[in-house]
């Protein structure tokens, strides 16, 4: 597949129908228009390959589903399309670690 063809693939991946997050298939720049659940959506902030965005608005303590399986709970509420990561998602098992020892705790 040529780079041109792959650029036409939808930039957001829904891994399981029950998921409430989607995954960036490639780096997506802020301001880019992408398709989210069949609707055109304006990406608010640049997101890197492999990172997660909220598929819909999520309240605090919402269980986040990826691959149809729980991967943690929201620490704070997020809007649709917002980056879901260490700053707003916590493990329901063991806190994640970062080099400065703060992330996830």
């Amino acid at each position: 597949m040529s780079p041109n063809e792959s650029a036409r693939l939808p930039p957001l991946l829904l891994l399981h129908p029950e998921d409430n997050i989607v995954v960036a298939r490639r780096d997506i720049a802020a301001g880019e228009r992408v398709e989210l659940d069949g609707e055109s959506f304006l990406i608010p902030a640049t997101v890197e390959l492999g990172h997660k965005l909220a598929r819909r608005a999520l309240a605090a303590d919402t269980r986040v589903l990826k691959y149809g399986a729980p991967i943690g709970s929201m620490k704070t509420a997020v809007a649709r399309g917002e980056h879901v990561h260490l700053h707003n998602l916590r493990s329901d098992y063991i806190p994640s670690t970062t080099r400065d020892g703060t992330g996830g705790h």
């Binding site: 995954v23 960036a24 890197e48 390959l49 492999g50 990172h51 997660k52 990826k66 399986a69 729980p70 991967i71 943690g72 879901v84 990561h85 260490l86 998602l89 916590r90 493990s91 329901d92 098992y93 063991i94 994640s96 970062t98 992330g103 996830g104």
Partner: peptide, 10 residues
């Protein structure tokens, strides 16, 4: 985490 994973269970 830099690669987009947030939690151990993920």
């Amino acid at each position: 985490a830099e690669g987009g994973l947030t939690t151990l269970e993920e």
